[in-house]
Amino acid sequence: MAGRRSGLFTRRRTAPTARLRRLAREMRRLRSEAGLTREDVTARTSVNEATLYRLETAKGRPQRRTLMALLETYGVGDTKREAILALSTQAGEQGWLRPYHADLPDEYVGYISFEAEARSVRNYESSFIPGLLQTEDYARAVIRGVLPTVTTKEVDQRVQARIERQVVLAKTDPLELWAIVDEAALRRTVGGTKVLVEQLTHLLKVAAEPHVMLQVIPFGAGAHPGMPGSFVRMDFPDSEDPPLVYIDSMAGDLFLEADEDIRRYNQIFDHLRASALSPDDSAGLIAALVREIT
């Protein structure tokens, strides 16, 4: 459960970060190069298999003494050892984390973490306006509609988190966002006519920014590869951090990083942008919808 950690891990809530993923990948590689199984490592150190699994799957950041014991077992030299210890320290740097985030689901906190570190995001949405482009009133209406059993406090926390996320588009070196939205998401009257008009007007404003690309797949495009559901693909500034695909579904949230998954979703996104209207034509469609509604 969030907040409860083994004594071999830091006690602060550990959300996944790009650096934590890199640390996990490096520790898996070092163990493999040493020719050791997890059972072998447990037999040679005080680190149990459950703890090792958490480290190697980016489920937690180990304490320094745990990491030192593993690096010694793997025969890692001083220079490499210092680099990994530094990486572990950096993996715990989460300036975006707020006190109330402890009440948010782990998957959502993880998503916020990755998004805050990303260099670029490609987001396809079939039913919603992308979270980074939502107005506060639209976000509140969406959350209440999708999660009818949550409390008012939980709604407020999620809305606040969603609005705070949008700072990535306003910083000095902003996130590059390429969003593709199905026309159905634009026409769904979330929160009522007034809220929808404000949301569409906000879309037109944000889409004019040079670091934001917005395309709409019109109803006339017919069937397309995005109809099964939405997804997000993230790229990170450091070449050592591989791309990540995020899928939010009724069955739960998934983070995919296997090469074949990345290639598959790259292909899907390429098909979607080919099916979508150009950015200018997309803006024209949104403006026409505003006139139609009002």
Rank of each mutant, 00 (worst) to 15 (best):
V197G: 06
A185R: 13
V76D: 03
N123A: 09
T10G: 05
E115S: 14
D182K: 04
L244F: 05
A161F: 14
V76I: 11
K194D: 11
S113D: 13
I217L: 11
I129P: 09
A258F: 02
L177H: 07
E198K: 13
A208M: 02
E82M: 06
M68I: 11
A116T: 15
W178Y: 14
K171M: 13
L147N: 08
E82Y: 03
D253P: 02
L20T: 00
M213H: 10
I143N: 05
L289S: 13
L277W: 14
P210S: 07
L254T: 04
E26C: 00
I112R: 10
D137K: 09
T14R: 03
S282Q: 15
P16D: 01
P105F: 15
E82G: 02
E164T: 10
D248I: 05
V290R: 14
F9I: 04
V155E: 01
L272T: 10
D103V: 07
L36W: 00
Q157H: 09
E72K: 12
R25N: 00
R65K: 07
G191F: 10
R263H: 03
I180D: 10
R188L: 11
A288P: 07
L70I: 03
A86F: 04
P237S: 05
E49T: 14
H211G: 03
A15S: 09
R12L: 05
V197K: 08
R264M: 07
V142D: 01
M250A: 12
A185Y: 13
R165T: 12
I293N: 09
A58V: 06
L214F: 13
P99Y: 09
T193E: 14
A208C: 02
G7K: 06
Y53L: 04
G191V: 07
L214P: 05
N266M: 02
A221C: 08
Q160D: 14
S278D: 12
T201Y: 01
E198F: 04
P218W: 06
P62V: 06
I262S: 03
G60V: 09
A18R: 06
L200P: 10
A274P: 03
D182W: 14
V168W: 08
L254M: 05
L254Q: 08
D235A: 09
A2D: 10
V181W: 10
V245W: 01
A207W: 11
I217Y: 10
Q134V: 06
